[in-house]
Amino acid sequence: MDALGLVNAAFDLVVIVLLPAVALGAVMSADLFKAIILFITLGLLLALTWVRLAAPDVALAEAAIGSGLMGALLLSARERLARTRPGRDRRTSHYPRWMTHPPPRRSHRAVSPWAASGLVLIAVAGLTAAVVTLPHEAAGLAPEVARQTPQRDLANQVTFVLLDARGYDTLLEIGVLLLAVAAVWSLGEAPEPPQNAAGPMLQGFVGTVGPIMVLVAGYLLWAGTDAPGGAFQAGVMLGALGVLLSLAGRHPLARLPGWALRLAVVSGPMLFLAVGVTMIGLGRHFLEYPQAHAKALILLIEATAMISIGVILVSLYAGGRPLSDESGTRKGRL
């Protein structure tokens, strides 16, 4: 083994040991804040791992979503929970009495740690047995993908799988995003953001970084057909910018009229569906792009998806439907 190989092997070993150690801390740390910080660290470690395992697209997604956005969501939920004062804050449900019930009196007993440990040991033993017996070399579908991508003029094979070969999965996945927004909005209005959040530092930082982030998002989208990147990574970049703006007290969606917000959320999935259905109209299968226009169609789908994803992620972070929403959810409208 040469020197570089040795360094790599040592690096791998360190990461392999660190991952479960940090995970243990994230799950078991006595202090919840510390647990969240360790969880964010775990996400960054995983992103590093994806790089080591030759998965740069996953690394980008993990760093932005799995670590960054999840971290922001967890921290804001922790802060909201801390602000919740039972009694003072208890909202009477706005639903008729006959639709609601008090929480059940008798309920479940927590599982004992011993039983849980037993279950976990069985699961880990079985999985270890399975993983070690897998063949140590397996091509998977890599040769098949390599055979098909040249036809499509898409050098990024992951984008090819996500948007073309398995585009249907991705359509449903954007459906999951849309569904998550519907679910969050159906749960009620967004809580009041904390008043004292934005210092002048953050304000200035966002002012400088914001335009750069928009540029990066555009680049990730454009380059994503040939280099690591794509609609999700770009959309998350926009979403992250929105979250930063929210933190700085400049709520990016608050000024949008309700219909514009809803249009932005829905347009990505709707355009994806429309492209799919148009293909049926042309006598092809659903989402079966014609050879000559495949790349252009994919870019079009990705561009609208990016905007929807960005807006959806900011909406998820807001934690409820916007106060400006005049969607008929005010009392008396429906």
Partner: peptide, 19 residues
Amino acid sequence: RAPGVADPVPHAMVITGIV
């Protein structure tokens, strides 16, 4: 485990899974 390159199909599936 794919020789040379990595298999991109699980990468796509994991990105879906992360979202």
